[in-house]
Amino acid sequence: MPTKTLLIPYMLATASGVIGLFFPPFQYATLVVCLLSVALGLSLLIKRLNQHIWDVHLRSMRIIDMLDENVVAAHAMHVVVSRFPTCDMPTSSWSMKFPNLHALLELLDREEPKLIVEFGSGISTLLIASWIQERGVGRLVSFDHDAEWACKTKHYLDRHSLASVDVRVRPLKSIVSSGHRCIWYDTTEDDLKSLSGVDLVVVDGPPAGATGTPMSRLPAFEVLREQMSPKAVIVLDDASRAGERSVASSWDKSNPDFELSHIANLAILCRTDDGCSQVIGTDLDI
């Protein structure tokens, strides 16, 4: 059965053959029409085959990309869990992915922060707590808006005997930051007073799906600006999303003393005089 693409040349060739059969004077003309119809049909067929081959190629490339991503994720998981078996708890679609956890671990090793503040608890909390336990010094304060999820994080911290972590539940509230309406953690003055000299800020919340506002992570920099140490580094998860790209760009433009870099799916801002950004992606073994 001819396809729709080949239907017209098929009909032309058939019609010219019939005409040539019953009207001999037109045999040569119908032969030419028949040959042209066949040529047109072949041309259309080749075009369809080329399109099909290209479609198969694109699908193959997407499959290869997915396999590459899975290989990278599996390697990152192996590196993280081999070093810290305590980095183990149920995750959600909002949780930090293992390639990002790997990059964060490398950054922890290089920067050696003493006070770490995290927005959005979970498996990243267990990683940082495990790193602090290995190092023997350091403190982590993690804010979460979801009391049930924060309780689960605390449960796994206790299960793995990970101390030096303060998980604080703070509901979300609507605020304006740099001219943008955002949904941010309702931190108190006491919260901020207890955070003097922050060396590392990990921004993995609020989850975009929980707020409905794509730039809700924007206030993180403004809220902790005065609490940051001279060597402070800010890490933003989900940096490939449109909202987070806008957040990172806004931070970069409004803070000339910081420089923006990327590794894995993290946006990282370092002090320009710290030299951190010059080694991001080369010194980090990702």
Score class of each variant (00 low, 15 high):
Leu31Ile: 01
Val33Ala: 15
Cys34Gln: 13
Cys34Gly: 15
Leu35Lys: 09
Leu35Met: 11
Leu35Trp: 10
Leu36Pro: 05
Val38Asp: 05
Ala39Val: 13
Ala39Met: 14
Leu40Arg: 12
Leu40Pro: 10
Leu40Ile: 10
Gly41Ile: 10
Leu42Ala: 12
Leu42His: 01
Leu42Trp: 04
Leu42Tyr: 05
Ser43Asn: 13
Ser43Ala: 09
Ser43Pro: 07
Ser43Gln: 06
Leu44His: 08
Leu45Glu: 02
Leu45Ala: 14
Leu45Cys: 04
Leu45Val: 00
Ile46Gly: 04
Ile46Lys: 12
Ile46Met: 10
Lys47Arg: 15
Lys47Asn: 13
Arg48Val: 12
Arg48Tyr: 05
Arg48Asn: 14
Leu49Gln: 08
Leu49Asp: 01
Leu49Phe: 09
Asn50Thr: 10
Gln51Asn: 14
Gln51Val: 02
Gln51Cys: 02
His52Gly: 08
His52Glu: 09
His52Asn: 09
Ile53Gly: 03
Ile53Met: 12
Trp54Gly: 01
Trp54Ala: 15
Val56Tyr: 15
His57Gly: 11
His57Met: 10
His57Arg: 15
His57Ala: 14
His57Thr: 09
Leu58Asp: 09
Leu58Ile: 14
Arg59His: 12
Arg59Glu: 13
Ser60Phe: 15
Met61Thr: 09
Met61Trp: 08
Met61Val: 10
Met61Arg: 08
Arg62Glu: 05
Arg62Leu: 08
Ile63Pro: 00
Ile63Lys: 12
Ile63Met: 06
Asp65Trp: 01
Met66Cys: 04
Met66Ala: 13
Leu67Met: 06
Leu67Lys: 07
Asp68Glu: 09
Asn70Thr: 11
Asn70Ala: 08
Val71Arg: 14
Val71Gln: 10
Val71Ile: 15
Val71Asn: 06
Val71Thr: 13
Val72Arg: 08
Val72Ala: 07
Val72Lys: 09
Ala74Ile: 06
Ala74Gln: 12
Ala74Tyr: 05
His75Ala: 04
His75Trp: 06
His75Pro: 02
His75Gln: 07
Ala76Asp: 04
Ala76Trp: 01
Met77Gln: 11
Met77Asn: 02
Met77Phe: 14
Met77Leu: 12
Val79His: 05
Val80Ala: 03
Ser82Asp: 11
Ser82Thr: 13
Arg83Tyr: 04
Arg83Asn: 07
Arg83Trp: 06
Pro85His: 00
Thr86Ala: 12
Thr86Cys: 02
Cys87Glu: 02
Asp88Trp: 08
Asp88Arg: 04
Asp88Lys: 02
Asp88Thr: 03
Met89Ile: 03
Pro90Lys: 03
Pro90Met: 01
Thr91Tyr: 00
Thr91Gln: 03
Thr91Phe: 01
Thr91Ser: 01
Ser92Leu: 02
Ser92His: 02
Ser93Asn: 11
Ser93Tyr: 11
Trp94Met: 08
Trp94Asn: 13
Met96Glu: 03
Lys97Ala: 06
Phe98Leu: 09
Phe98Arg: 06
